[in-house]
Amino acid sequence: MVDQTHTSAIEPSGPKPKKTFSRANIFLYGTLIMVSVYYLLPLYVMIVTSLKGMPEIRMGNVFGPPMEITVQPWVRAWSEACTGINCDGLSRGFANSVQILIPSVLLSILIASVNGYALSNWKFKGSEIFFTILIIGAFIPYQTMLYPIVIILREIGLMGSIGGLVLVHTVFGMPILTLLFRNYFASIPEELFKAARVDGAGFWQIYFQIMLPMALPIFVVAIILQVTGIWNDFLFGVIYTKPATYPMTVQLNNIVNSVQGVKEYNVNMAATLITGLVPLVIYFASGKLFVRGIAAGAVKG
């Protein structure tokens, strides 16, 4: 060991000696750790605040860990917090969000996958034009389409109902999902499709027996994309539902920003954390697929 260092002082040999704490490395890791603190701080503050009692919060330090852990704020946020005159907490919003989420995700993915399949394998005259309009539509501010949709929903009797919101989510999820599926199906070798047609398979047979089984990974990506997107929606919820059918995000905002009564910061943070929990769990559980989903979504749109 000693001998080796001795010779290397004269004659470079073996791996280049590396300082563990080179200036560049300190700078690099220093930056990353500082930025990480900025990113983790809000999550940490949410958790500690939601576990403190109000007297402790009034005393002082938002960053301090709770001296006395209490789950009371979580219970209150879930079942007792008030929005105006209603005092049944977030639980109703949670139930609404679940009822909105499941049909929206299923319907939007089903329609978009069939669309994507038709667009990549069964091109017909005009199909590309409709697709282009769809993609351009994704860039139009929602505000220009809000009121016409109100009229449509009123006409078909779905205004204010969960069904109406499901329809809205399906419509606005269509551009990105269709793009996702179209690109995926286009990447499957065309020979496969041709072989199936020569074997006499039709539109739905090819879709269900060949394309669908091959597209499972992209379905997972689409589900992740839609679940987080729809769960986190606020704008459509606030406009197309009524208090009885408010999704969780809208209810959360109403609870926290309600002007009546004494502010219960711990309950607010518990409610915020509960609302954020669903996408967070999906995010941490899906890992790379989530990144793939947003990367796919970012390709164009």
Binding site: E11, P12, S13, G14, P15, K16, P17
Partner: peptide
């Protein structure tokens, strides 16, 4: 490199 030496024009350039 993990071990050994490289010379170019008789100069040790391993590092």
């Amino acid at each position: 490199v993990s071990a050994g030496q490289i010379f170019i024009k008789d100069k040790n350039v391993t590092w």
